[in-house]
Amino acid sequence: MINGLDTYKKKWNIQTEAAIKPGLHAITAALKELGNPHQKGTFIHIAGTNGKGSTATFLASILREHGLSVGNFFSPEIEDLHDQIQINGEPIPEEEMDRTMNRLASLRTPLTDFELLTAAAFLIFSEHPLDAVIIEAGMGGRFDSTNVIDPFLSIIPSISMEHTAFLGDTLEEIAWHKAGIIKKWKPVVVGNLPEAAMAVVNENADKLHSEVIKAKEPITVELKLKGEHQIRNAQLAVEAAKEILLLTFEPEKANAGLSKASIPFRFEELYPGLVLDAAHNVESVEALIQTVKEQFPTKEIHFVVGILKDKNYKEILRKLEAISDRFTFISFESERALEANTLFEESRSKIKTIQNQYDILPVQGINVMTIVTGSMNLLSILRNDKFKVFANYKSAAR
């Protein structure tokens, strides 16, 4: 479910499916009806298990600092579909989205929800004078609806096990999907990938005569996005920016862009005692744990957790339980959400409760950090209801 999309679908009588249907046939046909807006502009394509949104945000900030006008397509939403499509860091206004959906209502090609939003993004970007457009793949890469572009370069920040029902149950299979965004003669910037995944990426890059670029520049500025993993994402953004800007690249402006970059739910301390982090799989949970240890070495940790069904929730719980014995589990409104009861029964924590997402999260005490984590869908719901949910923390922060 894409938050806010149903409003436009109902208004303009647009019929789409919420199901995930990997493949490029439908989106290609729909974009042809629209005059192929995805063929206009300089695109950067990002696919990977974790780090896509952060890398895209770092890169956009660097490019804007150099005077470029930049579009971003993020997946999933933070609050609703408007912030998935951004121009120079600003979400698309409702009026523009409304005009775009009106145009899309005449499409003859049946689409899924995500394909519809992808088409909307390309249409909107084609109508703005943009120097660069950064596109984040929704799932996988090779058969993701965003993979209709011929990008200037591609970026793969990380690869680990995810979406096994769609992408395969081995690291090599998943890497094959991610490597599908690599295009002939176009460079690909890669993060520190597992050996098996790197071999697949190298094989695909070799076949396409694509240069593989690895991050190597140290990051010397303070980042708003915390954690060692964010330093690696920032390094990828710098390498990509060098390729895009060439002789106009200025290290000082790159550092300024990195230092300004921020994104909700990336270890975001919303109020004293309350952190939101969209760690949704084993790899991102490991990064979260490392950051918790770095930032709050003396604090007791209280996790509030909601996870999607297709995630490895058992291993995620074991990781989180290694640094905390206090949990609150939440069911939230999504067809893909895992029931809180399942998490409660699987948890080995001694202090655990189940709570409705619309309840006020309790302040746990002066020496306790509450960290809300798991699905981005959950964090979006809490964000939209934040004046009620986070009331105690807001009062405590004053």
Rank of each mutant, 00 (worst) to 15 (best):
Leu116Gly: 02
Gly71Ser: 04
Arg103Ala: 13
Glu33Gln: 12
Asn367Cys: 09
Leu246Asn: 09
Ala26Gln: 13
Arg326Gly: 00
Thr16Trp: 03
Thr373Met: 07
Met198Ile: 08
Met161Ala: 11
Ser160Met: 09
Glu65Arg: 04
Asn341Cys: 08
Lys11Trp: 05
Arg64Lys: 13
His163Asp: 10
Gln86Leu: 14
Ala322His: 00
Phe267Lys: 01
Leu288Phe: 12
Glu17His: 07
Lys352Trp: 12
Ala56Ser: 14
Ala396Leu: 10
Leu81Ile: 15
His45Ile: 06
Ser75Leu: 11
Glu172Tyr: 07
Glu335Asn: 14
Ser154Ala: 15
Glu95Ile: 11
Gly89Ile: 14
Ile381Leu: 15
Thr248Phe: 01
Val304Cys: 04
Thr170Pro: 01
Lys10Gly: 12
Val201Gly: 05
Ala19His: 06
Arg398Ile: 13
Ile182Val: 10
Lys52Thr: 06
Leu104Phe: 07
Ala234Gln: 02
Gln357Met: 13
His25Asp: 15
Glu294Asp: 15
Glu217Val: 11
Phe267His: 03
Glu95Lys: 13
Asp310Val: 09
His128Arg: 00
Glu17Met: 05
Thr28Lys: 08
Glu33Leu: 13
Glu268Arg: 01
His38Lys: 08
Leu116Met: 15
Asn192Val: 09
Gln230Glu: 11
Ser349Glu: 01
Pro76Met: 02
Asn88Gly: 09
Ile2Lys: 04
Thr342Gly: 04
Thr220Ile: 07
Leu117Ala: 09
Ala119Trp: 07
Ile323Asn: 01
Leu167Met: 06
Glu294His: 08
Ile289Trp: 00
Asp359Ala: 15
Ser259Thr: 07
Ile330Asn: 01
Phe249Val: 10
Asp131His: 05
Leu247Met: 09
Ser69Asp: 02
Leu317Asn: 06
Asn312Val: 10
Ala340Val: 09
Pro129Asp: 11
Asn341Lys: 13
Arg142Gln: 11
Leu245Thr: 06
Val200Glu: 00
Arg108His: 11
His66Gly: 12
Ile181Phe: 04
Ser145Gly: 06
Asn3Trp: 03
Lys388Thr: 14
Asn102Ser: 13
Pro157His: 01
Thr55Trp: 02
His302Phe: 14
Val304Leu: 02
His163Ile: 08
Ile316Val: 11
Glu333Met: 11
Thr370Glu: 01
Ala120Tyr: 01
Ser375Pro: 04
Leu223Gln: 00
Leu68Asn: 11
Glu162Ala: 13
Ala105Pro: 00
Asn204Glu: 14
Ala121Gln: 04
Gln39Phe: 04
Val285Ile: 14
Gly191Arg: 01
Asp83Trp: 10
Lys352Tyr: 12
Ile20Gln: 02
Ile46Tyr: 00
Ser75Lys: 08
Met376Cys: 10
Asn36Phe: 10
Ile135His: 00
Thr146Trp: 07
Leu245Gly: 00
Ile381Val: 13
Asp113His: 06
